[in-house]
Nucleic acid binder design. Sequence first.
DNA 1: CATACAATCTTTACAGCGTCAAGATAATTA
DNA 2: TAATTATCTTGACGCTGTAAAGATTGTATG
Lengths: 198, 198
Amino acid sequence: MIERETYHHKNLKNQLIDKGIELVSTEGLKSFSLRKVAVACGVSHAAPYSHFQNKDELLNALQSHITAEFSKALEDTITIYGASADALAHLGKAYVVFFIDNPHYFSFLYTQSTVQIDLSFSEEVSHNYPPFETFKGLALKLMDKTAYPKEKKKDTVIALWSFIHGIASLATMKNVHYDENWEEKISDFICVFNCPFL
Amino acid sequence: MIERETYHHKNLKNQLIDKGIELVSTEGLKSFSLRKVAVACGVSHAAPYSHFQNKDELLNALQSHITAEFSKALEDTITIYGASADALAHLGKAYVVFFIDNPHYFSFLYTQSTVQIDLSFSEEVSHNYPPFETFKGLALKLMDKTAYPKEKKKDTVIALWSFIHGIASLATMKNVHYDENWEEKISDFICVFNCPFL
DNA sequence: CATACAATCTTTACAGCGTCAAGATAATTA
DNA sequence: TAATTATCTTGACGCTGTAAAGATTGTATG
């Protein structure tokens, strides 16, 4: 049935991830299936089980890759706008744009992910969710510039992350009619809350 | 196979919805299936097709019921705290508490729903998402009290809704470690943004 | 080099899923 | 009472995830 020169595929694990991400980004999670990914890679339906214990393990691998991509998008934004006055607005915009560009990623990362995300600034966590750490780093830096009250810093970072996350959540939902030109207005949205460092 | 006095169930449509909501709230959407609901109602696997065209139509019915329940929770809060100074904080807390009490409801309503939600204040929409309309009504009323700049009202309502929604989104995710005592702090979170009417 | 072993892939099989079609039963209408 | 309609059952189909057994290839060991 399967047309291939060699019996072994040689690079199946990587291609499963690549084609998997492709399927998630184009068709979404709902219609995602192991067998489709296998077919897309030109192998039999059970071949993935040589590299992943089950479907969830492949999904976790996809999520790790997409999270890394997301994290890089945020870091790139800081590289460009990190020193400017409205750096946080740019970062928030990058957050939302990432998921606007790939609407399926949002629900995929945030409703199916098993990756532990710690927003509570606990010291024990060594490897926290990279996008949040990126965000936290910039926010704290900006607060230091304006002598923001120390005891409010933690709450403020969590609140800001929640806010940006909420915008992304709503703006990426097909059935939600968000503000028409949110992209131009996201700075205004953030400035609605007149934080001294915004 | 099926043990029942009468051949006809008499109240299947309603029970499908009741048992369906029960299954969604206990086991979540992932393991939800038409056949399980049918078994829970003591009917054969194809019986639901006499009342719903397909699985999605039953899911939509469940969503409508849960949305109504959510909307009532918000309205009850306004009945109690609508006149108090921190009314909006109470409403925000009610929003989050509703989904904390039923974590499965959040992803069920906001990642699978086909109900159109219009957050952009467009005039054409006659029957908008009731929870948002409830929130909007209170927020506008509070802004009027403090002579909040008219041109910022719309952005502010959208921003606040996004913010509350983001908190609920993060706080209901099992894999996210949100602030330990968010319930006491949600007022602080909201006050991080020192809006004059908060 | 030859043999054994491990990794990778295929085939077959099974239960659960959504859905459709045909038939059975009961309620409603004519 | 007879015909029609609504409701429910049964059986079937293709799709899904997953396990087991077998085929093929790569690798390590003698």
